[in-house]
Amino acid sequence: MNRLPITKTPKCLVGGAFIRSESGRVYPLQDSSGEFFANIPLCTRKDLRNAVEAAAKAFSSWSARSAYNRGQILYRLAEMIEPRAEELVRAIMTTQPDRPAAESEVQTAIDRIVHYAGWTDKYGPLLGSVNPVASSHFNFTVTEPMGIVGIIAPEESSLLGLLSMILPAITSGNAVVALTSHARPYSSILLGEMLAVSDLPAGVVNILTGARADILPTMATHEHIRAVYACVGKAGRTEIQKGCAESVKRTVFLDEEKTIDWHSESAQGLDKIRSFVESKTVWHPIGN
């Protein structure tokens, strides 16, 4: 007799816990053959606010970790995902059945984690400076994480795209609240399950699912989110910037209407980290 397999109820990751939306609403996800796959939570602005609260709690301890420790935790994440790569490949293939493409996406994603693991203790000296001021002062500029970064992930690339946006923010000690792809959420949900059992402290990365229209306006105006990193079209950029102006929030955009090569070297690096740090300059007199 054929055993009936257990299907999984996909959940979001907030504060290290797996949650359904407080709204109780879901939307059905079909796989690539058009069969019902699962009900995905339709998160609300209340879920977003809860996620921001979790991120705020996580931020103080995550940003206080040593750069070495953050690097080790990110590398450990890559170590943990590597043996589970096939799970992620199959997760991507639920909606995108091209196996070689899915395998390549997972490999690049894991390599990208390693790339940023190596940045944690190097971006500081490259972005900061000791400044040769004309007066008798010791003057230096250091970088600090901004706080909570809101992310609107691309619709197309729900594993590599999402990770490529999360990693530069958390490398410097920010905490993240991300809304993942509406059409292809499952690999992000699985990624969330892997993040939850990694050494990354609970709440550093929070992943919500649902509709942009429900999340985006509140993400733009929420005062505790200090920067928004969004892969959206022109209408989305307009709405986000208008909302962000209320609290002079930093915005960084990727243009959804253009093709983004997530595999490219230019999709990672120091300038991405720079987008989510603040420069702080300190002066002190030199004397006896």
Binding site: A134, V282, W283, H284, P285
Partner: peptide, 18 residues
Amino acid sequence: AGVVWANTYNKFDPASPF
């Protein structure tokens, strides 16, 4: 704060980001 003056105040220099 973007600029912190320790044991001094209101110092500026073109080499020092503000």
